[in-house]
Simulated scan of single mutants.
Amino acid sequence: MREAAEPRRVARVILLDPEDRILLLHGHEPDDPTTTWWFTPGGGLEGEESREEAALRELAEETGITEVELGPVLWRRYCSFPFAGRRWDQDEWYYLARTTQTATAPAGLTELEQRSVAGLRWWTSAELSAARETVYPDRLAELLQRLLDEGPPSVPLVLAPEIV
């Protein structure tokens, strides 16, 4: 019997600008741009880097934003989903970050990201709440509003697993 592999360790960023807008990337399956979703910047850890280092590196690569104040871990979740011909099992940590740098220039995208990221945009909480598009993690609009109303949790919230 084959033992299950450890989930990929991922650092994601809840990036807020001075107006409390959140930055999300617009993604799709590399070979099928008709099914789309929005998601937070971030990705897998490389080598011996910490989650904090990965969060800042991924943010810079995917958005070009480097002027960031990285805050605490807000949420943790396990997710599993099919993408680009394989299944991804991930242990994700979501960091709060603030920036005044709102211009984006995603110059460090991997080849796979170049084929699957259609753009990015800043969303207000109200826009996110009204959105009818798929957004990951589930309940992001509700989680963002709670964050804006109450501030960061004293300990990271463990979100329900998302298995697609």
Rank of each mutant, 00 (worst) to 15 (best):
G44D: 15
G64R: 07
I65R: 07
C79R: 08
T35G: 12
A97F: 04
T66H: 10
P106G: 04
D20F: 05
T104I: 08
S125Y: 05
V73G: 00
A84H: 03
R86S: 11
T35W: 14
Q114V: 06
V117N: 08
T66Q: 14
R51W: 00
R115K: 08
R115E: 00
E52F: 01
A97G: 02
F39V: 08
Y78S: 12
T35Y: 15
S116L: 00
T35S: 11
D20S: 15
T102E: 04
A118C: 14
L70Y: 01
W93K: 03
A60T: 03
S125P: 09
L25E: 13
Y94H: 09
G119M: 00
P82W: 02
A84W: 00
A107Q: 13
A11K: 04
L56K: 01
R98F: 13
G42S: 14
G108A: 07
E127C: 14
P33G: 04
T100V: 07
E69N: 13
T102Q: 15
D89K: 02
D20V: 05
L109M: 09
T110Y: 03
L56S: 04
E52N: 12
G27Q: 04
R57Q: 13
Y78K: 05
D32G: 12
V73A: 05
S125A: 15
P18T: 05
P82H: 00
V73R: 02
P33L: 15
E6W: 06
Q114M: 11
E19S: 13
E111W: 01
S80Y: 05
R12E: 14
L16V: 07
P82N: 00
L109K: 00
I22Y: 07
E69L: 15
D32W: 03
E46T: 09
D31G: 09
E29P: 03
F81Y: 13
A103F: 04
V13E: 06
A107M: 10
L74W: 00
F81G: 02
F83L: 11
G47F: 12
E127F: 06
L56R: 04
P41I: 01
L70E: 01
E67P: 08
G71V: 09
E19G: 07
E92V: 10
Q114W: 02
T110F: 01
R21D: 09
V13D: 07
Q114D: 05
T99V: 10
S50A: 04
W122C: 06
L109Y: 10
L96A: 04
